[in-house]
């Protein structure tokens, strides 16, 4: 029993929001849960194999790209190549679908932007759960495969949760920038798939960093390659599984973390700045 009813006071003004209102976000927890569940329930509705797709999609990529990797990089055995490429592809699937889903979260929900108020950050946030569930399914199958081929992973496996959080933070920050700009500029919808395709090839998803570093290309390209957060994140993921961090250099790793945090901070600020104008542009 409450003796006093708490009366909430709200002020609407023309000022921009500059700071995340965590208290408000928290009070919308129920909506966050329902939006996340909606995305999960809807993704494989009316599909024949349902969540089987979260295994089937990466599986096809694994088969194609382990074959390609074998052709390109002959330094590893077929089994070795298969398990490394699997790890890369499964993790890439998580990161790239998270980026894509986050970036579409606003333009796919235009009626929610124009008809009702809630902290709009919930839309991109809630679109991530479905990616994590997809990943959990394909990753658990991968782990079985891993035990068969390699036995138990090394102690570095304990860092897996941290690496996943790092990866998702990057995906969210990167995707959020595209989500925000896509409200005003539709071009973004065409740029992102292309960009993701490109990133697939210049990150160690199936072509290893060692192989890339040995290519006869200018040094500065290799530096750019190394400070790309995605390269570091994927290598960190592989490090958790296999115990060796390809081409690890502390300064590059720290730079990539800095870039990730900066992207996240910038995107959230950009988002908050224009959040209240979405309805004017849709």
């Amino acid at each position: 029993m409450y003796l006093y009813t708490l009366v909430m006071k709200t002020v609407i003004s023309s000022e921009d929001k500059t700071r995340l209102d965590f208290k408000e976000l928290k009070s919308y927890g129920g909506l966050f849960k329902n939006l996340s569940l909606r995305d999960v329930m809807v993704r494989y509705k009316q599909t024949w194999i349902g969540f089987g797709w979260s295994i089937f999609r990466p599986l096809i990529n694994i088969i194609i790209f382990s074959g390609l990797a074998l052709l390109v990089d002959k330094s590893k055995s077929a089994g070795e190549q298969f398990i490394t490429v699997s790890a890369g592809v499964i993790f890439w699937q998580l990161i790239s679908t998270a980026i894509a889903d986050v970036s579409n979260a606003l333009s796919n929900n235009t009626n929610l932007l124009t008809k009702v108020y809630f902290p709009k950050l919930l839309l991109p946030l809630s679109s991530i759960l479905v990616c994590i569930i997809d990943f959990a399914i394909s990753f658990s199958l991968f782990l079985i495969l891993f035990f068969v081929f390699k036995g138990l992973p090394t102690w570095t496996f304990l860092f897996m949760p941290l690496v996943l959080i790092y990866g998702l933070l990057f995906a969210f920050g990167f995707g959020l920038f595209f989500a925000t700009s896509s409200v005003k500029y539709r071009d973004v919808k065409f740029i992102l798939p292309f960009l993701l395709q490109l990133l697939f090839y210049v990150t160690p998803v199936f072509i290893s960093t060692t192989y890339f570093m040995n290519l006869a290309i200018p040094e500065f390209i290799k530096t750019i390659y190394q400070i790309n957060p995605l390269v570091q994140i994927i290598n960190a993921f592989k490090w958790c599984l296999f115990g060796s961090f390809e081409g690890f250099q502390l300064n590059y790793f720290l730079i990539s973390i800095a870039i990730t945090l900066l992207t996240l901070w910038g995107s959230v600020r950009y988002f908050l700045k224009v959040e209240n104008t979405f309805a004017d542009f849709i």
Binding site: K9, S13, S14, Q46, N111, T114, K115
Partner: peptide
């Protein structure tokens, strides 16, 4: 609070709900 005013200020107390359409967010597959 769907669009922002260009200037001015509104204060209100309590919980506010707006019905600008019915079925906002209904998803056909659900």
């Amino acid at each position: 609070r769907i669009v922002k005013p260009s200037s001015g200020r509104i204060t209100y107390e309590g919980r506010l709900a707006s019905l600008l359409e019915v079925g906002t967010g209904f998803h056909g597959d659900l």
